[in-house]
Design a protein around this nucleic acid. Structure first.
Lengths: 121, 121
DNA sequence: AAGCATACATAAATTCCTTATGTATTACCA
DNA sequence: TGGTAATACATAAGGAATTTATGTATGCTT
């Protein structure tokens, strides 16, 4: 029985993405159909070339909440001696995803208007 | 002495912009040099055509914190019988603003990579 | 054998915001 | 002239979304 320290800690630009995690996860599930938690963290890291990192402490409780809300459903799978928990969007979840992504896109456009204003000519 | 109800309440897509308020304010101060709190709320509303609205409960404590951190400095101005508190970026604040905006832009690009993935060709 | 990656999970603490409330002046309009 | 909305500041309580920290366990590599 090993008592190891988790060396990998997820952070950087921490406060910036409060509230965006849910739509990020829903987006990935929309495109990939079936994903497990760890896979989500890795995919986000890959896509953003290490810029965005999801902490487990944020991810797992969120996934559990989405399951409780009927947005995702799960199935366990045994990989050798290890267990993976796969998440899939439900029918309701797919609709919700569209809404959530539209909201996020609108928000990003608004933010862009402020941060990168167009010249007046 | 009137006991009035504040009818204007700021909200919508609430959770999405946690953490972005600080760079938003710094961005506006960078471009406009001298601004007062209420003016900031109005400008954000105008620029985003009503999409983003800043609550006073978020704005004022944040401005006070930025002042405490030496990022902005203030001067009071009397407009008739009313007082306005003008905020200006300090030298340190201007440097911090560049950093904060770079971080936010990088974050927005990362978010965009996930939400609006480019086709593979 | 040690350390890293994989894979899940939860609890405490923190941060950032909303909601609510308070005070006061000025403008409008019916 | 009286009520409402807009202007302009402020703070406190509460909530939601995260970080930080910790725990458990397997598998791979060196």
């Amino acid at each position: 029985m090993y008592y190891q320290i988790m060396y990998i800690r997820f952070m950087n630009k921490s406060t910036l993405y409060k509230g965006c995690l849910e739509p990020i996860i829903m987006r990935l599930l929309k495109d990939n159909e079936r994903m497990y938690g760890y896979q989500i963290t890795q995919m986000v890291k890959e896509i953003t070339k290490g810029e965005l990192k999801i902490t487990e402490g944020a991810l797992y409780p969120l996934l559990h909440r989405l399951e409780g809300q009927g947005i995702v459903e799960t199935e366990m799978e045994n990989i050798g001696n290890r267990v993976r928990k796969y998440y899939t969007l439900t029918k309701v979840g797919k609709k919700q995803t569209t809404v959530a992504l539209d909201e996020l896109k609108t928000f990003m456009q608004s933010l862009n208007l402020i941060i990168n204003p167009k010249p007046a000519f």
